[in-house]
Nucleic acid binder design. Structure first.
Length: 479
RNA sequence: GGGGCCGUGGUCUAGCUUGGUAGGAUGCCGGCCUUGGGAGCCGGAGGUCCCGGGUUCAAAUCCCGGCGGCCCCA
């Protein structure tokens, strides 16, 4: 942290990484001064914001028939280790409990890196018959992964605090396929509400988790041009179920392996929202998510203090009925308060001074455009509804524009090379593994995924081999 | 994964080379005056100099180890 002033930020365009750290701290989202690397304290304002984000997800999950559960954070090694065969080095990324008090443990315990293993173990007892299927559950828990040296607040962490993981269980593979489509759809609706732009891709076979049949990712682009994985939807088919002996009895009395899927998102969703919408004054929050939607700032004038105070309270009592509202009647000067609440991303500010008092007309300033307007007091309620709708639509179109600015559709490998350092680049791909590898080799970055069958019938040619292109693939730097 | 730089009241930092009273700004508390984009003045509180060990009469300063942070490269 290099800035001295409480409400001043390193310009986002100059150094995104520094801007991001500063805004998290100065907007009171996270306290980064926790003495364990890769772990951070969530402050009240940040927690409330994240709760609002998670409430949207919770609603979407309930609407689509997923039931919330809780499985413990501690998993025995014998259960978890069956998963090790899928990922090389997986064991090294796990936090192990090896002692209880002064005694060494006979069997090590792990802090869950994800919950598939323990869930499948337990679900063996829940699932007996085809009548028990499909089963859709999810939980919001912390997961622990000792991964990278290069930790970053909210982006690359060792404790993912808000991990929403859905797990589903199906009789047929076809049902699992449909479930994955539903999972992708849930995530699309989620990010649409967050006003975060994304692209849905299927990961390449050589970059897909070995225990999975296939895997869809939602990707977005951060202001530094790097891709961020926003969510993942995995179809395991019966691979995982076979590992854990998860079977059901079908209509004919035959035992069959269960088909399973999982899908997860985390606080990275909020990281993307903050990174994409924030500016050099701080957060810019979508009205639906902002912990504080309206702030009222009194502008006292000598001799009118009491009248202005009374008027502010009157307006406050009206506005708070419908919107999460704060009346900032602290002793600070108005200008100071403007900067403070702009840092926190409050979408609408109402300024009330002598002028407003006498004219019965309020001054309203919107965070998304910095525009100031006057609204007659008796029209306030209806005008606020219109204004909030307008802010949301404006932020949505800003997000769309942002996404277009940072993507590039390349027609050749040279064009990829010329843009890949600053943008996410898409290109036409035939789908052959050797063409994919050649591009990765040439460009020096991995293919992040591809929009499946997006180019069938388009007439576009694979930029490597020149044959008919099937997919629009994406390549770039990533987190 | 490899290399480099760094850690001093809440925050930003001076002091470290050449060992000897930890200084400033900002923030915080009280008061006065004020309030339309970070006011000013007066008074006050606030420190394990990241942690542990070593060298020394004496360590923020020198040495070793650890923890934490940042940057570059893979």
């Amino acid at each position: 942290m290099s800035e001295r002033e409480a409400f001043e930020l390193t310009p986002k365009e100059e150094n995104f990484s520094r801007w991001f750290d500063e805004v998290l701290f100065k907007a009171e989202i996270l306290d980064e001064r926790y003495p364990v690397k890769g772990m951070y304290v969530w402050l009240p304002f940040g927690y409330e914001l994240m709760e609002n984000v998670m409430n949207i997800m919770d609603r979407l999950m309930r609407e689509t028939g997923h039931k919330r559960v809780y499985f413990p954070a501690i998993v025995p090694e014998s259960v978890l280790s069956r998963e090790f065969r899928f990922i090389k080095g997986f064991e090294d990324s796990i936090y192990w409990i090896t002692r209880l008090g002064r005694r060494d443990l006979q069997e090590k315990l792990a802090l869950r890196p994800t919950s598939e293993a323990i869930m499948y173990e337990v679900l063996n007892r829940w699932i007996n018959s085809y009548k028990d299927l499909p089963l859709r559950i999810y939980q919001v828990v912390s997961v622990y992964r000792y991964e990278t040296k290069a930790t970053r607040p909210m982006l690359r962490v060792r404790e993912i605090v808000f991990f929403k993981e859905g797990h589903t269980f199906h009789a047929s593979y076809e049902d699992a396929v449909k479930q994955v489509e539903l999972g992708v759809d849930i995530y699309k609706r989620f990010y649409d509400e967050l006003l975060v732009p994304y692209v849905v891709v299927k990961t390449t076979p050589w970059d897909t988790f070995p225990g999975a049949r296939y895997n869809y990712d939602l990707l977005t682009i951060m202001p530094d041009g790097k891709a961020l994985e926003l969510g993942s939807v995995i179809n395991f088919g019966d691979l995982f179920a076979k590992t854990y002996g998860l079977e059901y009895m079908d209509e004919n009395g035959q035992k069959k392996p269960v088909n399973t899927t999982s899908f997860g998102i985390s606080e990275r969703s909020l990281a993307a929202l903050i990174a994409i919408h924030g500016d050099d004054r701080g957060l810019r929050l979508p009205p639906k998510l902002a912990p504080i939607q309206v702030v009222i700032v009194p502008i006292p004038t000598k001799g009118y203090e009491e009248e202005i105070d009374r008027y502010c309270k009157e307006i406050f009592s009206k506005v708070r009925i419908k919107y999460r509202t704060v009346l900032d009647d602290t002793e600070d000067r108005p200008g100071y308060k403007f900067y403070k609440w702009e840092m926190k991303g409050v979408p609408v500010r109402i300024e009330i001074g002598r002028k407003e008092l006498e004219e019965r007309e309020l001054t309203i300033s919107r965070r998304d455009t910095s525009e100031r307007i006057r609204i007659a007091e008796d029209k306030l309620e209806e005008e606020l509804d219109v204004l909030f709708h307008d802010i949301e639509e404006n932020m949505r179109s800003m997000a769309r524009e942002y996404f277009l600015e940072r993507t590039y559709n390349a027609k050749s490998i040279d064009e990829i090379k010329g843009n890949v350092e600053t943008k996410l680049v898409s290109f036409a791909w035939c789908g052959l593994e050797e063409c994919g590898h050649e591009i990765e080799e040439e460009v020096g970055y991995g293919i992040l995924g591809y929009e499946e069958d997006a180019l069938i019938g388009s007439g576009e040619k694979c930029i490597v081999c020149g044959s008919e292109a099937k997919h629009r693939a994406w390549i770039g730097r990533s987190y």
